[in-house]
Design a protein around this nucleic acid. Structure first.
Ligand SMILES: NC(=O)c1ccc[n+]([C@@H]2O[C@H](COP(=O)([O-])OP(=O)(O)OC[C@H]3O[C@@H](n4cnc5c(N)ncnc54)[C@H](O)[C@@H]3O)[C@@H](O)[C@H]2O)c1
Ligand SMILES: NC(=O)c1ccc[n+]([C@@H]2O[C@H](COP(=O)([O-])OP(=O)(O)OC[C@H]3O[C@@H](n4cnc5c(N)ncnc54)[C@H](O)[C@@H]3O)[C@@H](O)[C@H]2O)c1
Lengths: 213, 213
DNA sequence: TCAATTTTGTGACTCCTTTCACAAAACTTG
DNA sequence: CAAGTTTTGTGAAAGGAGTCACAAAATTGA
């Protein structure tokens, strides 16, 4: 198979497959066909095979895929086999929730520091309930701490008005990945990546579907 | 323009345009061209025009679009001009954050009740800081309260293991829209709509882009 | 060993989305 | 009021993504 640009949608589906395969692995299934995986993920079986074909041959004809192997391969493709070191900037309602989100850890996403600008918050630790407390630093130490702790992804949970300036700090600190929860457009230089999570955009979608069906 | 199926991507972009137009309206801009709106939303100008063309003619040739009018039209198209009544099910870390999310209100999404299964939580009110406290009911009253308060959208923030059974309750109560934050596939009957918000899927995406660029 | 069965990997086809390019419409200015 | 300018709305072209269909590969069983 010759090289092709990989569709963004393929990457999203790989993540879905990954989640399904994890469930299958837990429940002891060893082998899975593209048809089984597809029906579980609500996609077409040819789609599953094509998605995988972008990256190589992982199956055995007449048999299917080894759950464990395929899971490993997909994680390697996605880059989610390594541990990713993250920071939360803005420890308010949402930021605190993220700090105690167990699934991140399970999926190799580790929050190793957090930052705020509000002095009362910058005194101690949070997320004690997980056993692994995460320190809160003043945001003016972001660059220093980001380098020290090798932070690769920043989660922006400040008010929207502060989001761009926080992003600038992250860029300056060499944090190449940003997950932005503040409902505003953020601009970063070439080589950096921003993904937005806009709750109201998704609600708008839902509202449209509810209004027109 | 004859009828066509409207792409999902168009709806997502309309929501983006809507957000931009709101900012423009606030800053007093009265007229905007497709090119200006496009560059603000990081899309192609023809795309903006084509997206709008699905629904009618909103611009004035040689001039552009009236910000206020276009915003109203887009909101009407999306169905986000009316107030949507929502409930949060699972008042834990994330559920509590959602209860105090100001942007929902600003965008006509109103949380009018919340539910949990944990007796200590089902005693009073939360989100006092917004002035408008939201009551927490025991989840076994969901059907009753949903009807009484005309809830149209349910936000699922329970553990994944409970998500499907909560969805079943919502379906039974006639709540047609579900925004699911629990990282698990939910199945609902025809006529109901589920949108998932999987944080780790988005992180997987980010991880892929960071690993391969 | 060989035919029957299963299921992958992939070229070809179809469908959908985006971009281009330009006529038509409205405004501006001399 | 007419020529010039701007910007929309849209058909046509290009580009991507999803599905189909089948040869190739592996397994099973007689
Ligand atoms: N609450 C939610 O459920 C929710 C949902 C989706 C999106 N969001 C978005 O996430 C962001 C945070 O929401 P929230 O409800 O947690 O708000 P919040 O006010 O509770 O938290 C914001 C935090 O950011 C801190 N902060 C402000 N400026 C800062 C800066 N320059 N550097 C570092 N920290 C700074 C504040 O001190 C505060 O602790 C907002 O942009 C909001 O729109 C929130
Ligand atoms: N914490 C986060 O930042 C975050 C981010 C993304 C997704 N999520 C997902 O959101 C969900 C909630 O996460 P959380 O961190 O808030 O967990 P949590 O444990 O703090 O909250 C879960 C809440 O649900 C309640 N609950 C349990 N079963 C219930 C039922 N049958 N009916 C009603 N309520 C019930 C619990 O009592 C608890 O209050 C999980 O599925 C999680 O994976 C959380």
């Amino acid at each position: 198979m010759k090289y092709q640009k990989i569709p963004e949608a393929t990457i999203r589906r790989l993540s879905r497959y990954s989640r399904c395969l994890e469930e299958m692995e837990e429940s002891g299934e060893e082998v899975v066909s593209s048809a089984q995986l597809a029906s579980r993920c609500m996609v077409n079986a040819a789609q599953v095979r094509k998605d995988l074909a972008y990256f190589g041959e992982f199956g055995i004809r007449g048999v299917g895929y080894h759950v464990k192997n395929l899971l490993n391969d997909i994680k390697r493709i996605l880059g989610s086999n390594k541990e990713w070191r993250m920071a939360v900037i803005g420890v308010g309602n949402l930021g605190s929730a993220l700090l105690s989100y167990k699934d991140f850890l399970k999926q190799n996403y580790k929050i190793v520091a957090s930052f705020d600008i509000d002095p009362p918050k910058v005194i101690g630790r949070v997320s004690e309930k997980l056993g692994k407390p995460v320190e809160i630093f003043h945001v003016n130490r972001l660059k220093e701490i980001a380098k020290e702790r090798k932070i690769e992804i920043g989660l922006i949970t400040t008010p929207p008005s502060e989001a761009q300036s926080v992003a600038d700090l992250l860029v300056e600190a060499g944090v190449r990945g940003i997950l932005n929860f503040a409902p505003t457009q953020i601009v970063v230089p070439e080589g950096f990546v921003v993904k937005d999570v806009f709750f109201t955009t998704i609600l708008d979608n839902l509202a449209y579907l509810l209004s027109n069906n």
